[in-house]
Simulated assay, not measured.
Amino acid sequence: MSRTAIFASCSRLPEGDGDERSVLAALDDLGFTVRWAPWDDREAGFAEAELVVLRATWDYTERRAEFLDWCESVPALCNPAVVARWNTDKSYLVELLQAGLPVVPTTLVEPGAQVDWPRTPFVVKPSVAAGSRGAARFDAGPGGSEDAEAHLRGLHADGRTALVQPYQSSVDTQGEIALAYFGGIYSHAFTKAAMLKSDVDPSGLYLVERLGAAVPAPEVRALAEDALDTACSLLGILRAELLYARVDVVRGEDGRPLLMELELTEPSLGFRHADAGAPLRFASAVRQQLA
């Protein structure tokens, strides 16, 4: 039986960044007809589609309220609208921290609020952002604090809440490790090098990442599992209801793994750096969502 699905994108990258090519072939083998459409295309037929998969909707940060309204209007959306609303604002990290997860220490700074700058190198980033846009690293001390204040004023002038986090030096040597899950089940992992000084993609939507295949250590895998379980508990959903998830982990100064981000809305899933079975696992997870 033929099934149909729409991969939701944006007008600046109407067919994503190319990472899903192998996934489209795997879905075709299972009898799926897949097409791409920008999420704000009113003629795309999202409301009638059997399944709509959030993939490259990377301009949502500029129109988040409109994007979330659109998510609510799509009955067969993966991941669901309730997930997108929670996960597209990085303040969810504070919720996970309060729930007892080992998360990179995170302070929210609302517009107009003041902050005591860390005494070690730190990062300031907008709470609503994708692809590391708007993130900047600063050194401790007067010079770094002055630059950070200027960056913070710029974010606040746009009405944006900021996150302040201590910079994790392990990113410079080990990078981050990203663990991909399909239907709540582990699929594969890949490393991501630091992006704060990387080039911006021609689309202007994200910073170019340097990726590579990886095998997560047991304690990293355990943290990723705990992060998924905690998030699903907070959201009141089952892990199987998540078509995909990406858990980004770094090593803290003491070597322990820390959660950097939990990407449940439109993450790159690293298929180009995964084993040949990853697209097949994703295609099976898509079928599971329809069931």
Rank of each mutant, 00 (worst) to 15 (best):
41 D>Y: 11
110 E>V: 08
112 G>I: 05
139 D>E: 15
50 E>K: 10
159 G>L: 07
22 S>A: 12
127 S>A: 14
233 S>G: 14
33 T>N: 06
122 F>Y: 14
227 A>W: 07
269 L>F: 13
55 R>F: 09
188 H>L: 15
232 C>H: 07
166 P>Y: 12
55 R>T: 02
74 V>G: 05
181 Y>A: 05
133 R>C: 05
103 V>I: 15
75 P>Q: 09
182 F>C: 02
28 D>F: 14
229 D>C: 08
265 T>C: 08
81 A>P: 12
96 L>C: 10
88 T>I: 04
144 G>Q: 08
252 G>S: 13
202 P>S: 10
282 F>L: 12
107 T>H: 02
241 E>I: 03
126 P>K: 15
157 A>S: 11
84 A>C: 06
262 L>K: 00
166 P>H: 11
223 L>P: 00
166 P>M: 07
289 Q>F: 02
176 E>T: 03
156 H>G: 07
105 P>E: 13
141 G>C: 12
176 E>P: 02
23 V>R: 11
159 G>S: 14
64 R>L: 00
234 L>R: 09
177 I>R: 09
225 E>A: 12
73 S>R: 06
171 V>M: 11
220 V>M: 12
20 E>G: 00
20 E>H: 01
248 D>N: 10
146 E>Y: 05
131 G>C: 08
11 S>M: 03
175 G>I: 06
195 M>N: 01
135 A>Q: 01
260 M>N: 13
243 L>S: 03
291 A>R: 13
12 R>F: 08
137 R>I: 01
174 Q>F: 02
211 L>T: 08
46 F>Y: 02
42 R>K: 00
99 A>M: 10
112 G>P: 02
184 G>H: 06
125 K>E: 04
223 L>H: 07
38 P>T: 11
82 V>M: 02
169 S>E: 13
203 S>E: 03
